[in-house]
Simulated assay, not measured.
Amino acid sequence: MDSVHGSSPTFFTQAEVAELLRVPVRTVEDWRQTRVGPPYVKLGRHVRYDRDELFTWIKGRRHG
């Protein structure tokens, strides 16, 4: 595996994030619009979530 592809970030779509978290896609959209959700990037009209940032955000919501 070369260094360019080996270190490339993995991005999720809104639908993939919703499926992973078992919430409706609309919930992920609401989180993004109200800025309470995980960090995201916009590539033109496309919204993507970096895997590492997503899991960091999830861990930051742990209680107990």
Rank of each mutant, 00 (worst) to 15 (best):
L54W: 01
E19H: 10
L20Y: 03
A15P: 00
Y49N: 00
L21T: 02
R22A: 12
L54F: 04
H46P: 00
H46F: 10
R26M: 12
V28F: 02
T10N: 06
H5L: 15
Y49P: 00
P9Y: 04
R26H: 12
R22Q: 11
H46A: 09
P24R: 11
R35Q: 02
D52A: 13
Q33L: 15
P24L: 04
P24F: 06
E19M: 08
L43R: 15
E29R: 10
D52T: 13
T13H: 03
Y40E: 05
T10E: 11
V17K: 00
V23Q: 07
W31L: 05
P38T: 01
A15R: 07
G6E: 09
G37F: 01
K42N: 10
L21S: 06
T13C: 10
F12V: 00
V47Y: 06
K42W: 05
H46T: 13
V17I: 05
V28L: 03
T13P: 01
P9F: 05
W31I: 01
Q14N: 11
P24G: 10
L43M: 14
R22D: 12
P9M: 06
A18K: 03
E16F: 08
R51N: 08
G6P: 04
V36F: 02
V25A: 10
T10R: 14
T13I: 05
P39M: 07
F12G: 01
R22T: 07
R51I: 06
V25R: 08
P39S: 09
L54D: 00
F12N: 01
T10A: 08
V28T: 02
E16N: 08
H5A: 14
G44C: 09
T34Q: 04
R32I: 05
V36R: 01
R51K: 15
S8M: 13
Y49V: 00
S7I: 07
R45W: 06
R45L: 10
L20M: 09
R35P: 00
T34G: 05
R51P: 05
F12C: 01
F11T: 02
V25M: 11
R51E: 14
L20G: 03
V25T: 07
L21E: 00
G6F: 12
E53A: 15
Q33T: 10
V41C: 10
V47M: 07
Q33K: 12
D50Y: 06
R35A: 04
T56R: 13
H46V: 13
Q14D: 12
F55L: 14
P9L: 04
R45C: 05
T27H: 12
H46K: 13
T13V: 05
G44H: 06
D52V: 08
R35S: 03
